[in-house]
Simulated scan of single mutants.
Amino acid sequence: MKRVWKKIKVTLFSVVLMVAFTAGCSSTKSTSDDFTQAEQETKEESSQEAVKTENTKDESELLHKIKEKGVLTVASSNDAPFAYIDVETGEFEGIDAVIIKEIAKRLGIPKVVMKEVAFENLLIELNNKTVDMVTDAMYIKDERLQKALFTNAWYQEGEGIIIPNDSSITAKEDLKQATLGGQKGTTFLETAQAWVKEGKVKEVSIFGKQTELMMAVNTGKIDACITDGIVAAYTLAQDSSLNLKILSPYESEASGKIGAAIRFEDQDFLYEVNTVLDEMKEDGTLMDILEDFGLNEDYFVDVEDGITQNKK
């Protein structure tokens, strides 16, 4: 009887050991699985952060900041048809406006807004860092390249001479006895001032805005004005109250290439903008935009000819 009881006790002890061992193994396996899952989640999180960091590295510092804000701010003197605020819709419109909005879209920037600045102060405003870039039909010129970086050329154009419909001026030679108006800060004003020194123009009057310039000719305050040829054609087509016309035939002297200005420290952003701009030239988008504004292939600048040699 004692021997039987002894066997029962041994059997019970063995069962207890097996249960304990099984429970121990089960507990160990569960802890191991939990650790493996946590480790996997940590790896996935690290991988996502690495991708995010890599994407940030692929962007310039300025582009990253602009995308965080969700808006690109550009400076313009509010002159149609380049970059202006439509008085009826309140929207940013014009040739330069459409181009920069397409560039922004391709760079992942959802919105572009315009800050109105007097033309002669555009580069000052840019370097004061109140705007991200300047887009206002600005000629790429050596003296401006001393103050900012410029993108590759967006398009090219030249000046026009605006006269009253009944003017006695029929050719450039007739300007010798004329008072010619020009807008402050523009290439065209510089051309007019050079003509005075050369004896081609009697005198020059300076105006702050395009609208003031055109109105001065219309009211007889000056004999003629020199301005952007595209602006002149657009203004006269839009405003039938102006008793003005463009002098023709006429061969422009101040033709040049148009680009956007960017601060010297934002070279990486310049590269990003130029990359997208050149893509727009190659896929036909830029030419389509020019045609929408009545401009033909004479205004188009291809990728190779449009490369800007910045000074810094």
Rank of each mutant, 00 (worst) to 15 (best):
K2N: 11
V4R: 14
V4N: 12
W5G: 09
V10H: 09
T11Y: 10
V16A: 11
L17T: 11
A20L: 13
G24V: 05
S27H: 13
T28P: 00
S30N: 14
T31E: 11
A38R: 05
Q40G: 00
K43H: 11
K43A: 11
E44N: 13
E45T: 13
E45P: 02
Q48C: 03
E49L: 12
A50H: 02
D58Y: 13
E61W: 07
E61C: 07
L62W: 05
L63I: 15
L63R: 15
K67N: 03
K69E: 08
G70C: 02
G70M: 09
L72H: 06
V74N: 05
N78F: 12
D79Q: 13
F82H: 14
Y84C: 02
I85R: 08
E88Y: 14
T89P: 02
F92M: 08
G94L: 09
D96S: 05
I100K: 02
K101P: 00
K101C: 03
E102R: 12
E102V: 07
K105A: 14
I109T: 05
V113D: 15
E116C: 05
L122Y: 01
I124W: 13
I124S: 15
N127L: 04
N128H: 14
K129W: 01
T130N: 07
T130H: 06
V134A: 10
A137D: 04
M138N: 03
Y139H: 14
K141C: 00
E143V: 10
L145K: 07
L149F: 11
T151M: 06
N152Q: 07
W154I: 06
Q156T: 14
E157M: 11
E157R: 10
I161S: 02
I163S: 04
P164W: 15
I169L: 01
D174F: 12
D174E: 06
Q177E: 09
A178E: 10
T179D: 04
K184F: 04
F188V: 02
L189V: 04
E190Q: 12
Q193F: 02
A194Q: 06
K197W: 09
K197A: 05
G199V: 06
V201T: 06
K202R: 15
F207D: 06
E212S: 03
L213W: 01
L213M: 01
L213K: 00
N218D: 14
T227R: 12
V231Q: 10
A232W: 02
A233C: 03
Y234R: 03
T235S: 08
T235Q: 08
L236R: 10
L236A: 11
L236T: 12
S241R: 01
S241Y: 08
S241D: 07
L244D: 02
L244I: 03
L244T: 05
L247T: 03
P249E: 00
Y250V: 08
E251W: 15
S252H: 14
S252A: 14
A254L: 04
S255D: 04
G256A: 11
G256V: 13
G256N: 11
G256S: 10
K257Q: 10
K257S: 04
F264G: 01
F264L: 04
Q267F: 13
L270D: 00
N274Q: 05
T275Y: 12
T275R: 13
L277Q: 08
E279F: 14
E279V: 15
E282F: 07
D283W: 15
I289S: 03
L290D: 03
F293C: 10
D298Q: 14
F300E: 05
F300D: 04
V303Y: 10
D305W: 07
D305Q: 06
T308C: 01
Q309F: 01
N310Y: 01
K312L: 14
K312E: 14
